[in-house]
């Protein structure tokens, strides 16, 4: 029986040491990954599509650590200055093996109609960014950056952006566009379609 107890004691000691070593190595490796910008955001681009203001944020994930990133999830929450949620977007990725890199595109979609309803002028909107990742299948890591202030340009609001002026007969005479992107105004009556294009300012 003493031999069994001795073997049990050694097994517990070795298993505990290995567990502590794994924990220390994985946390060290994870922090090295974050500090060496293994997860970096690229240059964002903006697009207006179907009444939504869409910001595209590319991320490059270069997993130079010792273990696989089992799951990576990026969530952004856009809030008005009072804290009311305007939009929420989540992007998930699959397994990112150790030594590999991948590109992730995260899209932040803001409903322009909602922005008009909130009657926001040139104010700051707030953004919460949450990055969740599962490391080595065991360790969960989450970074939350809350209440980041983003200036909101009211010229994006269609009500103040596009102007249509008419002549005395009521037909459209000019179409103004205060945005930074091209816009198209389509007018149609029973028989004809008028297309008026406006270049970016």
């Amino acid at each position: 029986m003493r031999q069994s107890i001795r073997v049990l004691g050694w097994t517990i000691t070795i298993a505990s040491l290995l567990t502590f070593a794994f924990l220390g190595l994985s946390i060290y490796s994870l922090f090295q990954l974050v500090m060496e910008q293994g997860i970096a955001a690229g240059e964002s681009s903006v697009n207006i599509s179907n009444g939504d203001y869409v910001i595209s944020l590319p991320f490059l994930v270069n997993n130079t650590s010792y273990f696989d990133i089992t799951k990576l999830e990026i969530t952004t929450i856009i809030k008005d200055p009072e804290g009311g949620v305007i939009s929420q977007s989540t992007t998930s990725s699959g397994i990112i093996p150790s030594g590999s890199s991948t590109n992730i595109s995260h899209y932040i979609s803001i409903d322009l109609n909602k922005m008009i309803e909130k009657n926001l002028t040139d104010a700051n909107i707030l953004m919460d960014t949450i990055m969740d990742l599962r490391y080595a299948n065991i360790i969960g890591f989450s970074v939350t950056m809350a209440n980041v202030s983003i200036p909101w340009d009211a010229s994006i609001s269609p009500r103040e952006t596009f102007s249509v002026s008419t002549n005395r007969d009521g037909a459209p005479f000019s179409f103004g566009n205060k945005t930074n992107i091209g816009a198209q105004l389509l007018l149609h009556d029973q028989f004809r379609v008028f297309e008026v294009n406006s270049c970016p300012r």
């Binding site: 004691g9 924990l23 946390i27 360790i139 969960g140 970074v143 939350t144 950056m145 809350a146």
Partner: peptide
């Protein structure tokens, strides 16, 4: 920037260490 919160979840490893502690109690009883 707002506030920055970092969260590390190693509850699985903690559970493993607690299991080893229970085995250590069993060893002491034996």
């Amino acid at each position: 920037a707002g506030s920055l919160q970092i969260l590390v979840d190693f509850s699985t490893i903690l559970a493993a260490l607690l299991v080893f502690s229970l085995l250590s109690i069993v060893k002491n009883i034996l």
